[in-house]
Design a protein around this nucleic acid. Structure first.
Length: 497
RNA sequence: GCCCCUGUCGUCUAGAGGCCUAGGACGCCACCCUUUCAAGGUGGAGAUCACGGGUUCGAAUCCCGUCGGGGGUACCA
């Protein structure tokens, strides 16, 4: 059993390509097969090595690196190579020559202008576009003479008449009349470069692909491939056409309407595990009510029977929920590793004033992990710890039920207790009873304040924000000196406001 | 236009003729927990299974039609 993913490096790694790759890998793992990565860079005008690297690195990051073919570092392994179409030109011309020799293909001398005119004429008569096949009636000897004389000619594959049946693993039997295929198919341009429908078949045949699992957008073109496989005299692979991933308006997911670049999701702080989990459940289900699944679990459970037939809308909100689940599920030391680059980047671009140490992050993790759905969200939640001063907004500083005078009184009343109770580098008191909290509650009660209001005033004074990790842990993390100076600054701010 | 695929809560889905008074999850609302925000817990609203005909004692499940949505239709991939 051999499957493949064949990305085209004409743009950044697309999330839809990632899902197709995942389904292929899952299918291979489940059935003990080989998962192959092939780069389809026949379109030299649009393909770039930067895009290729982006795709290869993306696959590796997701855990979808090739068993055979092009690996994450760009190297190739396997005995069926080369695995880049740009390196297979010789082979395509060789196969094309065989088809020509058997008269299964013929040179076409039509110019672009002639083909345009033909197409427009048919359009005017409300007929579907279709090549007339007129060059197909030129005697092979005459055609050969003209080619030898240097006349420019593309090579067309003869599409035989009749119905083509696709026995699709997810859609069942699909029958398409060859009449609807648009006439004889160009497989080699006049300059000798091969076209997609041809290269894909030659490669799948040469590489011994047994199962072609790809997006539904290829279903209508599959008869062309089947006819080509038959002309080549090689056994047909099984086909499985996956439902498309859709924009919220239910059109095919596109860059214009959705975020499609994997790298953008990565940069936002989506976890590899979450993306895999989410993508697996887009168009496939376990048949059970399980939702949070690891790659290992997916590999053990995947099947084509539960693949959906209708397109699936990419629901970003659901992805974020799954990401939050995985953030909480990851071991803390692993989570620290994942968070590291986000803090480093924030320090580099000035969102925080200094680099956070591993020890500091380790102390933070327990109080932020249930508060973030994206790794990047950790920064605004904890930036107050890594900055020299906070800007106090008086409107936030004064709790709803309080006025400025009460707030000043509250901060002043709390100050000596905090000066006494918070030093530097103290351990957190996560679940435990906190004596400091008890004291402050006492102060609030004596003054007739709601403790929550006092806490809110302190929260904003210490962090500049109204939504933060737990107050007492936040204050301990900050340290006594910084805390007191922020309280003083907050009081000063209120006096001048 | 033509060809093909498809149609269960807003979204992802369970469902293979009686287990369906259609289940779960996200999101939404309420409550609980609670120093904020989350997380977590409980409950709720939300689908005449696109519609219309059949078949059957019985249909979300089978058949036909209609309508809606999507994809394809290149000397792009």
């Amino acid at each position: 059993m051999r499957v493949r993913i064949a990305p085209s490096p004409t743009g950044p790694f697309h999330i839809g390509t990632a899902r197709t790759a995942l389904f292929n890998l899952l299918y291979a793992r489940r059935h003990g097969g080989t998962y192959i990565v092939r780069v389809e860079d026949t379109d030299v005008a649009r393909s770039t090595t930067d895009f290729e690297r982006d795709i290869l690195e993306g696959l590796r990051w997701l855990g979808l690196e090739a068993d055979e073919g092009v690996r994450g570092d760009g190297g190739e392994i396997g005995a069926h190579g080369p695995y880049r179409q740009s390196a297979r030109g010789e082979r395509y011309r060789e196969v094309a020559a065989e088809l020509l020799a058997k008269d299964l293909a013929y040179p076409c001398f039509c110019t672009a202008a002639e083909l345009d005119a033909e197409r427009m004429a048919r359009e005017a008569r409300k007929l579907p576009p279709r090549y007339s096949g007129r060059c197909g009636t030129i005697a092979p000897a005459d055609a050969a003479t003209r080619v030898a004389a240097g006349e420019s000619a593309a090579l067309r594959f003869r599409i035989p008449a009749g119905a083509v049946v696709i026995d699709d693993l997810v859609r069942g039997r699909v029958e398409i009349d060859a009449e609807a295929l648009g006439g004889d198919l160009v497989i080699l341009r006049a300059d000798g470069s091969p076209l997609y429908h041809f290269t894909v078949v030659v490669d799948d045949a040469d590489m011994g692909i047994t199962h072609v699992i790809r997006g539904e957008d290829h279903l209508s073109n599959t008869p062309k491939h089947i006819l080509l496989f038959q002309a080549l005299g090689v056994p047909l692979p099984r086909f499985a056409h996956l439902p498309l991933i859709l924009n919220p308006d239910r059109t095919k997911m596109s860059k214009r309407k959705s975020q499609t670049a994997l790298a953008d999701y990565q940069a936002e702080g989506f976890l590899q595990e979450a993306l895999i989990n989410f993508l697996a459940l887009l168009g496939w289900s376990t048949g059970s009510e399980d939702e949070i699944l690891s790659m290992d679990e997916l590999q053990g459970r995947f099947d084509l029977e539960h693949v959906q037939k209708a397109g699936a809308v990419f629901d970003r909100v659901r992805l974020e929920w799954i990401n939050g689940q995985w953030i909480r599920k990851l071991p803390v030391d692993e989570l620290l590793l994942r968070l590291r680059p986000f803090y480093d980047a924030a320090a580099a671009d000035g969102r925080i004033a200094r680099v956070a140490s591993d020890a500091e992050l380790a102390k933070l993790l327990p109080i932020i992990r249930e508060r973030i759905q994206l790794l990047s969200a950790a920064i605004p939640l904890t930036d107050f710890l890594f900055t020299d001063r906070v800007e106090h907004d008086p409107a936030l500083l004064v709790p709803k039920r309080w006025d400025a005078a009460t707030t000043i009184a509250g901060l002043e009343a709390a100050r000596p207790i905090l000066a006494d109770g918070i030093g530097e580098g103290e351990p957190l008191l996560l679940e435990a009873d906190d004596p400091l909290e008890a004291k402050l509650r006492g102060v609030a009660e004596a003054a007739g304040w709601k403790a929550g209001d006092l806490f809110m005033a302190l929260r904003v004074a210490a962090t500049g924000r109204t939504a933060t990790p737990p107050l007492f842990d936040s204050m301990r993390l900050l340290g006594g000196a910084a805390l007191l100076s922020r309280i003083d600054a907050a009081i000063a701010r209120l006096r001048t406001a």
